[in-house]
């Protein structure tokens, strides 16, 4: 039998991989994708917990799913703006290496 634990562990692993991607990659597109992965991991946990609660209660329970719905919407917005920024950075610096975007250093 598949228990909630498994989903949680899977979610944690996916989240960690996403975080790792954010930290070690220098391509902003990959970093963005990693962020999407982390959001997905969180979404998976939401749905799993919602399902667990639904089964315990014995009646339909949508709050977890609705939250995921919102996350997807926000992610879409984020991607739209983020990609626009990346394009803009590329236009000025002619590169997408974020290690070269460090003019705000102290």
């Amino acid at each position: 039998m598949v228990s909630v634990n498994y989903y949680i562990i899977l979610s944690a692993i996916l989240f960690t991989i996403g975080a790792l991607g954010v930290l070690i990659r220098r391509n902003p597109l990959i970093i963005f994708m990693s962020i999407e992965l982390m959001l997905n991991a969180a979404n998976l946990a939401f749905v799993a917990f919602g399902r667990s609660f639904e089964l315990t209660q014995g009646k339909p329970f949508f709050t977890g799913q609705i939250f995921v719905f919102f996350v997807i919407a926000v992610a879409a917005a984020e991607v739209a703006v983020g990609l626009a920024l990346i394009v803009e950075i590329f236009k000025t610096k002619n590169t997408v290496n974020i290690d070269e975007v460090n003019s705000l250093k102290g």
Binding site: V22, L23, I98, V101, N102, L104, G106
Partner: peptide
């Protein structure tokens, strides 16, 4: 000394957050 931490690298900041 602290301004060296403020190195302008986003990845480094992200590492701090992590």
């Amino acid at each position: 000394r602290m301004r060296k931490i403020q190195n302008g690298f986003v990845r480094s900041y992200a590492l701090s957050v992590l």
